[in-house]
Amino acid sequence: MTEKKPAEELAGVLERARAIRPRLAKATDKLNQVIEEAEKALAALQLGVRGEVNLDFDEESGWYRSLVFGKEDKVWRLLIETGDCVVGEIHSTTPLVNASREIRLQVIGKLPELVQKMMEAAEEEVRRVEATVAQAESFTLSLMRGAK
């Protein structure tokens, strides 16, 4: 059995790289398409609430990375947000489709949790709005009775 020379081994690796490149590009395009479809489906729910799922957190520094469904330029989007929770500062917000492939792959499994968080936020918002409406109605009724 003859050993391959390093140049021959490299040539084989480069050939494999040329062959895999279009498959990887096609798979990544499909991943982006699926993300965009998920984004549209979430927006179609018309909940009007932000949802957030933690992806990474460093307790010492307070640095975090989260998957967010929120507004960016008046459009509801899937976003990756990084920031510092100690000072309450958001450092960057990136549309998920523009995040690294590694992050895009990481968050797909988090989408059901994100929807659950959005539902919890929507239910809490309903309670807040209903309580505020009841308070406003009570106030208005008091004013109308006092004006008579």
Rank of each mutant, 00 (worst) to 15 (best):
D58R: 08
N32Y: 09
L114K: 00
A17W: 07
G62R: 05
L96P: 03
A44H: 02
V129R: 10
S61E: 05
L141R: 15
E113G: 09
L111A: 01
W76F: 05
V53T: 05
L114N: 03
G62A: 02
K71H: 02
I90H: 01
Q46M: 02
E137F: 07
K5E: 15
E8I: 02
V97W: 07
I80N: 00
I103R: 02
T2I: 14
F57H: 07
S66W: 04
G70V: 06
L105I: 08
S138M: 15
K26Y: 06
L55M: 06
Y64E: 06
N54G: 11
K4N: 07
A44W: 01
V133Q: 11
R104S: 07
Q33V: 15
A11Y: 11
A147H: 07
M119K: 14
W63C: 08
E39K: 01
P95W: 00
V133L: 15
S66L: 02
T28Q: 03
I108H: 01
T93G: 04
K110C: 10
R104W: 05
S61A: 09
Q116N: 14
G83W: 11
E15N: 13
E125S: 10
L47Q: 01
D56V: 07
R77A: 02
E39V: 11
Q33T: 12
R101C: 06
C85F: 09
R145W: 13
E125F: 03
K148I: 11
P6K: 10
N98F: 11
K4T: 09
E124C: 07
T93Q: 13
R145I: 14
S100A: 03
L24F: 13
R128L: 15
D56R: 05
C85E: 15
K5T: 09
L14Y: 04
L79V: 02
I80P: 00
R104V: 02
R104G: 00
I108G: 00
G70F: 05
